[in-house]
């Protein structure tokens, strides 16, 4: 599922799968959350939007604040546990941090697997489908009688 969401933001998915994915997004919180995060990664990598202010951004910012980041000669020490980073490196660090956070949490996000069997429930099957099948193919007269009954 994550692979499909990733493909969506890379424009590598066909129209049919987009419809399916959007339908799933509306139904499943896990898929919605994953899509939001992948959208953010996509935006950061393409540098076309500013990171939205939400819990994830806050987590990233506080993680960066708390960790002494070591990035070769780009860093200037500011205090014992923080680092001042030159302005040009922010987008890169931001992207990397987002990826690290996403990677660490992705395995804990409850999303639908590649198999989509959980989406179809018994009550989703229209009764006329079963009746039409038995009416056309029954090898059991009891079914046939009931089909005749229900077709009325």
């Amino acid at each position: 599922m994550n692979e499909k969401i990733s493909s969506l933001f890379d424009s590598e998915i066909n129209n049919i799968e987009v419809d399916t994915l959007l339908a799933k997004k509306n139904k499943m919180a896990g898929v919605r959350s994953s899509m939001s995060e992948y959208q953010m990664i996509s935006d950061v990598l393409k540098k076309n939007t500013v990171l939205p202010k939400n819990n994830l951004t806050d987590k990233i910012m506080s993680a960066i604040d708390e960790e002494p980041t070591q990035m070769g000669g780009f860093i200037k020490a500011n205090s014992s546990n923080t680092a001042v980073v030159s302005f040009e490196i922010w987008p890169v660090l931001g992207s990397l941090a987002v990826l690290v956070v996403i990677a660490s949490t992705a395995f804990n996000i409850e999303v639908n697997s590649v198999s989509t069997s959980q989406f179809l429930a018994k009550e989703d099957i229209p009764k006329e489908i079963i009746n039409a099948h038995h009416a056309a193919t029954a090898n059991n007269m009891n079914y046939f009688i009931q089909v005749g009954d229900s077709a009325k």
């Binding site: 049919i16 419809d19 399916t20 429930a121 099957i125 489908i129 099948h133």
Partner: peptide, 26 residues
């Protein structure tokens, strides 16, 4: 649209979505 596989009585049913059509096998 629905996707997946379920059993009802002695029948198995599979559903897939494609190009605006719900495909179902029983």
């Amino acid at each position: 649209p629905k996707e997946g596989t379920v059993s009802i009585g002695s029948n198995n049913i599979s559903a897939k979505y494609q190009d605006g059509y719900q495909i179902m096998s029983v």
